Amino acid sequence: MAIAKAERLMNLALCLMNTARPLSKRELRASIEAYRELDGGSDEAFNRMFERDKDDLRELGLIIETAEGGDDEVGYLARRDRNRLPEVALDAEEAAALGLAAKVWQQARLAEAASGALQKLRAAGVPFGEDASDGHLGALEPRIPAHEAAFEPLMIAARDRRPVSFDYRRSNAAQAESRLVEPWALECWRGHWYLAGWDRGRKDVRVFRLSRITSRVRTRSGAFSTEVPDHVDVREAVARWGGEGATSTARIRLRRGAGYPLRAKALETAPVDAEWDELEIPYGHGLDAWLVEFGPDVVVLEPAELRADVVDRLRAVAKG
Rank of each mutant, 00 (worst) to 15 (best):
P145S: 14
P183A: 09
A158G: 07
G201E: 14
R220I: 06
Q175L: 14
E187L: 01
E152I: 08
G242S: 04
R235A: 15
D230V: 00
I144T: 13
A132D: 07
L210K: 07
S211W: 05
S133L: 08
G135S: 07
V126M: 05
R170G: 15
K203W: 00
V234G: 12
D230I: 00
E244M: 11
F166E: 08
D160C: 03
P145I: 08
V234H: 12
L137W: 15
G129K: 13
Y168D: 12
T226Y: 02
E244D: 15
T214V: 13
F166Y: 11
A146F: 02
L154W: 03
I213R: 11
F224K: 09
P127M: 04
R216F: 01
F166G: 10
A132M: 05
G135W: 10
A223F: 04
L180K: 14
W184A: 10
A223V: 09
V228D: 01
W198A: 00
V181M: 11
L195I: 07
R143N: 06
N172K: 00
H147S: 09
D131F: 11
A158H: 04
A158L: 05
A158M: 07
R159K: 04
A176S: 15
G242F: 08
E152K: 06
M155G: 00
R216Q: 13
G138L: 03
F128Y: 07
V205D: 05
R235T: 15
A176D: 13
S178R: 15
H231F: 03
L180V: 15
E187K: 11
F166K: 05
T226H: 14
G129V: 12
K203H: 10
V217G: 07
A149I: 07
A173K: 02
G197R: 00
R143T: 10
D233E: 13
L186G: 02
R179N: 11
M155Y: 10
D131M: 11
I144Y: 06
L195R: 06
F224Q: 08
E187T: 07
D233S: 12
V228F: 01
Q175H: 14
F208T: 12
R202A: 15
D134T: 14
W241M: 13
P145N: 11
G129I: 12
A223H: 11
A150H: 13
W241A: 04
W184S: 09
Q175A: 14
C188K: 01
